[in-house]
C-alpha cells in the first residue's frame, strides 16, 4: 500500500532523512518509532505530497507522491503533528467543513467515525480550541477519516495526550485496521511500538531496523541487567566508569545496563558497586523491551 524506496531529503545543511526504504502492506499498522529529529515528520510529509524528496521514489496506494499528488490527496487521511483544526470553529463545524472539502457529507461516512465521534458528540457545539487534548485528537481523527481514506497517516497522534486517552486512541486505531484501513503512525513512545504490526526504528534520519515488535525483541540476544541503588545519580556515574560496562541508561526506577562482553555476570556488577559503597543494591536479569533494542541499535550507530 505504501512503498518507500531510497528516500532522502535535506534542508540546507541538515540531512533530515537519508536513504529510507520500507514497505507497508494493506491493512497493516506500521509504526515509525524514534525521538524528535529522527525524520519521522519529514518522511510523512513527503508521503503526504507536502514535501518533495531529493532522491528516491515513493508510492501511496500505487500512486507516485510527486506525479499523482492529486490522487493521493483524495484517498489519504492525514493528521499532522500539531493540532491542525480551526480552533474558532465548533466541533461540528470543523467536521462539516472537512466533509465538504472532501466532497462528502458527515452522514455518508458516519458509520466509519461513529465510534470515535460519539465520544465527542456531547460537545459538538463547543469550539475546538476549548477541547481537552484527548478530545482534540479524537476530533482530528474524525476529520481525517471523514472521507473514508484507504490510508491513514498519523504524525505523533498521542503526543501530549494523557495515558487513558492514549490507550483509547490505540483501541480506535485497531478498530480502523479491522475495517481494512492501512495506518502509518509515528510516535516517540517506545511502549506504543508493541501495538503496531511492524515498526521502523528511526534515528537521525536513518532507519535502524524494521521488523515486528516481537521479532525485534527476540533478536536481541545480549544480556541485560536492571540495577538499582540508594543513590541513583552516583550509581549511573560509577557504572558508566566501569570498564566492563558497554552502556547504561535510566529506565523508570532502574538502570538498564549491558556488559561489553556477553559473559559479564550480574555478580561482577554487584561486587564492583558494593566496592563503591552503594547501598540497597539490586541487580537482576531482565527481558529486553523495544526501548532496549532501540538503545542498543543506537549505540551501534
Amino acid at each position: 500500500m505504501i512503498n518507500v524506496q531510497h528516500i532522502s531529503k535535506s534542508y540546507k545543511e541538515i540531512q533530515a532523512v537519508s536513504d529510507i526504504s520500507f514497505e507497508v502492506k494493506k491493512g497493516e499498522i506500521f509504526g515509525l518509532i524514534g525521538p524528535d529529529g529522527a525524520g519521522k515528520t519529514t518522511l510523512m510529509r513527503i508521503l503526504m505530497t507536502l514535501l518533495i524528496q531529493d532522491e528516491g521514489q515513493a508510492t501511496m496506494g500505487g500512486f507516485d507522491v510527486i506525479k499523482d499528488y492529486k490522487k493521493i490527496r483524495k484517498m489519504v487521511g492525514y493528521m499532522p503533528g500539531r493540532f491542525s483544526l480551526y480552533q474558532d470553529l465548533t466541533v461540528e463545524e470543523n467536521l462539516n467543513f472537512f466533509a465538504t472539502v472532501f466532497q462528502t457529507t458527515v452522514e455518508e461516512n458516519y458509520e466509519l467515525i461513529k465510534d470515535i465521534y460519539i465520544q465527542i458528540e456531547p460537545f459538538k457545539k463547543r469550539l475546538a480550541g476549548k477541547l481537552s487534548g484527548g478530545m482534540k485528537q479524537k476530533l482530528a481523527l474524525s476529520c481525517a477519516l471523514i472521507h473514508k481514506p484507504e490510508i491513514l497517516v498519523l504524525d505523533e497522534p498521542t503526543t501530549g495526550v494523557d495515558a487513558v486517552s492514549r490507550k483509547e486512541f490505540w483501541d480506535m486505531l485497531k478498530k480502523l485496521q479491522a475495517k481494512g484501513i492501512t495506518i502509518l503512525v509515528s510516535t516517540p513512545y517506545m511502549d506504543e511500538a508493541n501495538l503496531c504490526n511492524r515498526v521502523a526504528l528511526m534515528q537521525k534520519g536513518k532507519v535502524l531496523n524494521i521488523d515486528t515488535p516481537q521479532k525485534l525483541v527476540e533478536n536481541y540476544t545480549r544480556k541485560l541487567y536492571a540495577i538499582r541503588a540508594n543513590d541513583m545519580h552516583q550509581l549511573i556515574q560509577d557504572i558508566r566508569a566501569y570498564e566492563k560496562t558497554d552502556y547504561a541508561y535510566a529506565f523508570g526506577q532502574y538502570l538498564h545496563v549491558t556488559g561489553n562482553e556477553d559473559d559479564v555476570e550480574a555478580t561482577e556488577f554487584e561486587s564492583y558497586l558494593i566496592q563503591k559503597n552503594h547501598t540497597k543494591l539490586e541487580v537482576f536479569d531482565i527481558h529486553p523491551t523495544i526501548e532496549d533494542v532501540f538503545m542498543d541499535r543506537m549505540g551501534e550507530q
Binding site: L50, R73, S84
Partner: peptide, 13 residues
C-alpha cells in the same frame, strides 16, 4: 501559522 494550511494542502482543494 496554525498549521491548518498543511491539512488544506493535503486535501483535494
Amino acid at each position: 501559522e496554525l498549521g491548518t494550511m498543511e491539512v488544506l494542502l493535503a486535501s483535494p482543494l
